[in-house]
Amino acid sequence: MSEAVIAATGLRKTYRTRQGEREAVRSVTLQVRSGEFFGLLGPNGAGKSTTIGMLTTLVQPTGGSAHIAGFDVVRQSREVRRRISLVHQSNAVDRELSVRENLEFRGRYWGMGSRGARARADALLEQFGLGDRRDALFYQLSGGQLRRMLIARALVHHPEVLFLDEPTVGIDPHSRAHLWDVLRELHGRGQTILMTTHNLDEAERFCRRAAIIDAGQVLACDTVGALVARAGGRVTVSATYDGPVDLAALPAGSSAELRRADVREATVHVVTEKPEGLLGELIALGSATGRQLLDMTTSRPSLENAFLELTGRTYRA
């Protein structure tokens, strides 16, 4: 295969805390080529941020190895850091500095002179629609502005690889759409991007390849198309009742698909190849529990189905 910009082999991390050991990542192996927009998908606590932490040298791996642009993340961490940028999930901005100073010092930390760094900061802020907020402190920004600022800051030193940890969480649809335009444009220009997300629709739309991880392990790593194909011709039927239902109340003779369904309070997700006969069964499940079926939706085969196939769980942001 062509040269991988990100290559991880058997990456492992066990956190040692006062409460004991916690195996956050068991074994992550993946490769991302130059120019790819790669998705890292998984539920809460799957180990996505920990994996990104190891790839960006902030977290010391317990085992395995990883290379960025050919440099070892442990032994050549400075070479790695020189080439990457990370937008944290946790909004780690320099709280004492203004928006502009955050970008300015980002440039200076990468060796720019202060005048050059200021010019670069101003240009990026203008491009990201933050020109009039440049003297604001972080708590004076809206969630969407803060995210934009963090992405602008991540671009100051022209990173070879951009890591984004859940970049669209907590921002409204408008800001989200805008962010996607920005990322699409970056990707179009050849920027390598590794992004974690809960939002499978977004992953499906933007990532060419993705890895699905759960409980610290890669369950599948493939093109999004191939991942979707794994779900076969199956679709997900989601039924919502006026209150919690219980599969234990299922009448005898119910289909095996329904017995395997994923129940979340008042909503039931069923993966099936033949959704036609399901309506009657779902109504029967409702009456058996004393609930009324309010709504039923059917989704086409998608990454969401693939995720359910692989993890046995539905995937809700």
Binding site: W110, Q127, H157, H158, R184, Q191
Partner: peptide, 15 residues
């Protein structure tokens, strides 16, 4: 969005 112009993936100079 198209104004988010910048060069990408130059080899960053050593610091």
């Amino acid at each position: 969005a198209s104004s988010a112009t910048h060069a990408v993936a130059r080899a960053a100079p050593p610091v």
